[in-house]
Nucleic acid binder design. Structure first.
Lengths: 155, 155
DNA sequence: CTTTCTTTGACTAATTCTGACTATAATTAT
DNA sequence: ATAATTATAGTCAGAATTAGTCAAAGAAAG
């Protein structure tokens, strides 16, 4: 886990920046040329070392004035249940299963009633109806995982 | 929403004017020459940052004494705006448009910050990524309309 | 030797910037 | 009145400027 390869070095560099600022905005090509690597290596570093599981949220924008923004977030304490739920979801989720998960989240005070209603509206059968049950369940799974991942931290 | 590109700077400038006056009338060529850009860039800024999804209504007049008028609308004052938004969504919605709408909903106190974050996670590009841009935008549109409908029946 | 992780680059996608061409309204000339 | 001229703004497509994806090659670990 030390600086034997360039990815580790870039990781360390970025984390030092973040240690100071809590949130940092970089130019992919600048960082790449600073370490003399191809730009896509920056994507590799971010994808493998700045995940939400590790407490980082990443946003980016392309085009003129583009950037990659990395933010350090505070992970909540009691998130084992989130991992459990995510693992159970896999790559498909029915509406019934989705409702059950939302119910669990409300019971554990991870979301409010109002928030539950909004999530329900999102994963509703009609909303996601696209004529392909398998794909529908996959999208519903994606949405639910995204929401569970978001609940890992407080913004 | 940063200031590395000139469009963001012009956006900020205009929004500061509007923050004071709620409604503002500009000369396209004046603004363009003030920021030393071609006039059509003003159209670009308006088209990408002052849409109805962003909560603005724009009118203009050509010819002598022409102008561009930008007005900020309040959802509380005219609840038909929800219908206008749903209409504007039609059968496709990009992530960018979705973010604009959610931001507008927060500014108008129709949803909380937390609720906004959950909806954002739902309509996120990664979340809905299924290898078909058209279908992705259609699903995103469905979700957003479901949310807006839910908000209407709540108030 | 096999598996996993890292590095690379060709191709793709999104956003911004620019300018030529078009459209409309007001003013001036006939 | 009508036509010509001037003064605005709109549209659209292409160039420029970023970042993302993916798969193959190379290196390291087990």
């Amino acid at each position: 886990m030390q600086g034997k390869n360039i990815s580790d070095i870039i990781e360390k560099y970025l984390k030092e920046m973040i240690a100071e600022d809590e949130r940092v905005e970089i130019s992919r090509s600048d960082i790449a040329s600073h370490f003399d690597v191809v730009p896509s290596q920056i994507n590799y570093v971010i994808k493998t070392r700045f995940t939400i599981q590790n407490g980082y949220v990443v946003e980016s924008k392309r085009g003129g004035g583009g950037y990659i923004r990395i933010e350090k977030v505070k992970l909540l304490d009691n998130i084992d249940i989130l991992d459990t739920l995510i693992n159970a979801i896999g790559d498909g989720l029915t509406q019934r299963e989705g409702k059950a998960i939302i119910n669990t989240l409300v019971l554990n005070d991870l979301i409010t009633d109002n928030e539950a209603d909004l999530v329900l509206a999102s994963i509703n059968k009609q909303t996601l109806s696209i004529g392909n049950k398998l794909l529908e369940n996959e999208i519903r799974a994606n949405i639910m995982v995204a929401i569970l991942d978001h609940l890992r931290y407080k913004s």
